[in-house]
Nucleic acid binder design. Sequence first.
DNA 1: TATTGTTATACTCTATAACTATA
DNA 2: TATAGTTATAGAGTATAACAATA
Lengths: 171, 171
Amino acid sequence: MTDVKERFGIEPGGGGPLDSLGFLLSQLGFEGSRRFHAALAPLGIDPRHFLLLRFVAREEGRSQQALGEMLRIPASRMVALVDQLEERGLLERRANPHDRRARALHVTPAGRRLMSRALKRATAHEMSLGTTLSDAERSSLVALLQKLAVEMQLTSGVHPGLSVEHEQPED
Amino acid sequence: MTDVKERFGIEPGGGGPLDSLGFLLSQLGFEGSRRFHAALAPLGIDPRHFLLLRFVAREEGRSQQALGEMLRIPASRMVALVDQLEERGLLERRANPHDRRARALHVTPAGRRLMSRALKRATAHEMSLGTTLSDAERSSLVALLQKLAVEMQLTSGVHPGLSVEHEQPED
DNA sequence: TATTGTTATACTCTATAACTATA
DNA sequence: TATAGTTATAGAGTATAACAATA
């Protein structure tokens, strides 16, 4: 490994901690999210809605709690998220005949139409990233990030920003 | 470029948008930040304080506004951030004899002592990332991320999460 | 008249824990 | 007695715009 300490000098021009792997990931993750957020904004949803809507479509009919556990979204956050999607008529809470406490979540036709539009924007966003990299570079970058994701025990499709309880980092 | 559309299928097992470059960066950036936040917490500061304190040390005596412009931190956020660091005795606002409106920022001796401890933790955090990668993989990952940072017009040492006005993305 | 830094206000988001209705 | 989902409350963080002192 390259000498990590030299990246932490406070001398100007020396790079600083600013070109560290951690800082780069934080900058890029945040900036990418900001752009994705902007890409979805015209549709009236944000990345959390997009993620949840996709999951509901994939796990059609599951209870609100089951979905929340899969995505590791705390129950009280789920309420607001599902409320917002339901208000826009994108998904429905249906009664479960076997357990009247539970709410089965279903995507509505309008929800599917919006998902299709959102998917186009998400794809365009994804394609807008890494345009200065060659095909080989882009694949190798994704592979390395996946290796890092395994190391950090991240789960595919589960965003840590939705799972966190108590305090939120900004940097 | 690998076919980006196939990453966006909603079929389970197909990967989903979840292994996209954008989503990976967001997950990793957030999780890394969360860990860095936790690493600094015992010292009573968070990553924003660490970044600002380092900058003040590097640009000793600059005005609060000049620092804010360099880091692209809105003026009203700077007040709270500097307040917190001053309350802990880590930096001082000094009068500027040439312009009595301006406040020159200086790191105190206690601030330098704390920075040294924080630097150790930051280094340990940085070294804890990428331990499952070979030296060559780690360097190539950093190089690719830097290329992406250039593409996205990010500035070394400036975190977009501190610059944003109006709305904050979470994903 | 413009600028530096501060503050007052209102707004959004959150965690927590209490709560309802079911099981 | 436990669980699914909801809500009430209080706290943290923010943007905005107004503000005082100084230029």
